[in-house]
Nucleic acid binder design. Structure first.
Length: 371
DNA sequence: CGATCTCCTCTTCGCACATT
DNA sequence: AATGTGCGAAGAGGAGATCG
């Protein structure tokens, strides 16, 4: 016992020196950390074939000034946002008089909020027509409005008014192939008539190209074979989600270690981080329901359990209706998926949790309980 | 001048009814 | 029976108007 302690004390100094040196080394391999920020818009991107079609449509809009709306489908990390933003950036360099707005609908999920964001008028109490008027005023010249994750939009006012009373062009991005089909309002559909473009999932070569570009711009040293393995794994194990590859690349770049097991570990950590952010953004009610679904993967048992925990934690309650609405929401943001089953005469849904590490939910609850 | 009222919207949630 | 949908009620909240 004593000996161990002594050893530890003795090592502390060398340990800290070693760590210090390591930290210096870490910083040494990073050429530009910004490159690895998931919201970074690079000047140079991997141009997928489908992007040419988008570019053509935008080009037509700009030169003829006739609305030419675009709807882009693609799964998580298929490059929708980055591609579109980079493309618009380069169009802007050619057309100085062109304007553009980018709005994340997950964040601004009603037409009212979108108008507020666009007009810059954030005060409350104004009627929707007032805010709308201000927002449309900003769209008189050639304007492109990008609505990211448009399936989160709760009403269609923006779409209607932008199609009808402006000459602006919409670029809508979504993961949901059915979103447009499910719009009931025919008048909106007939005035919008977007060109629909599907961004396929990247294959492993494409992901390799993307990682290589980021590595070249952001790192001093890396290993080709490592990038190849990473892209293969991202394709196979992480639904071709490029974001996870990029995050992992940064982690490995910092350590400048490219052995196979570090790669596996780095990817796992990266995906946990992405999941962690989603979980942190949930409201208490959602979180508790998610937790009960993890505990009981069958909706009815989970409902009973959720009622109990809600009551314990905050004295809240949920109706079954609302409970299901929340489950649907959780499914929408990709935390779980439901498999409908029939047992005898009855139906149930089996819940499949899509988190690779469900314990973060419990941890998040504990953190919130302490406050 | 501060207090209160009024206006308008947003969000959340449950009820009743519809669907599977 | 288990889920999903439409609708509307309740409460919150912020800013400007109005009043004492």
């Amino acid at each position: 016992m004593f000996l161990k302690g002594a050893c530890y004390m003795k090592d502390l100094k060398t340990l800290s020196m070693e760590k210090m040196k390591q930290s210096e080394k870490k910083a040494l391999n990073i050429k530009n950390a910004e490159i690895f920020d998931l919201n970074y818009t690079p000047n140079k991107i991997y141009v997928r074939d489908e992007l040419e079609e988008v570019a053509e449509q935008i080009g037509d809009y700009l030169s003829m000034n006739v609305q030419n709306h675009i709807l882009v489908y693609g799964s998580k990390g298929s490059g929708k946002t980055v591609s579109i933003l980079s493309l618009i950036k380069s169009f802007k360099e050619l057309n100085r008089d062109m304007k553009s707005f980018y709005i994340s609908v997950r964040e601004f999920s009603t037409s009212y909020k979108i108008y507020q964001k666009m007009s810059g008028i954030m005060k409350r109490g104004l009627s929707i027509s007032d805010v709308r008027k201000e927002a449309l005023e900003k769209m008189k010249e050639k304007t492109i409005l990008v609505l990211d994750e448009v399936d989160f939009l709760k009403d269609l006012d923006v779409l209607y008014h932008i199609c009808r009373s402006t000459k602006s062009n919409l670029v809508l991005l979504t993961q949901k192939i059915h979103w447009y089909k499910e719009i009931r309002d025919e008048s909106i559909k007939s005035s919008m008539q977007p060109t629909q473009i599907l961004f396929k999932e990247y294959n492993s070569n494409e992901i390799y190209e993307i990682l290589k570009m980021r590595a070249e711009d952001g790192l001093y040293r890396w290993r080709e074979e490592a990038l190849k393995l990473m892209s293969a794994l991202v394709t196979r194990d992480y639904n071709s989600d490029t974001r996870i590859g990029i995050k992992a690349l940064f982690k490995l770049g910092v350590k400048n270690s490219w052995e196979d097991d570090h790669i596996y570990e780095g990817l796992k950590e990266a995906s946990k981080e992405v999941e962690g952010e989603t979980v942190q953004n949930l409201r208490d009610m959602d979180l508790i329901i998610l937790h009960s679904l993890i505990k009981y993967n069958e909706t009815n048992k989970a409902y009973t359990y959720a009622l109990k925990s809600l009551d314990n934690y905050r004295g809240y309650s949920v109706s079954k209706t609302h409970f299901f609405r929340i489950i649907n929401y959780l499914q929408n943001i990709g935390l779980l998926s439901l498999i409908k089953k029939r047992i005898g005469r009855y139906y149930t849904s089996e819940v499949q949790i899509l988190l690779s590490d469900p314990t973060i939910v419990k941890r998040e609850i504990q953190i919130r309980m302490e406050v």
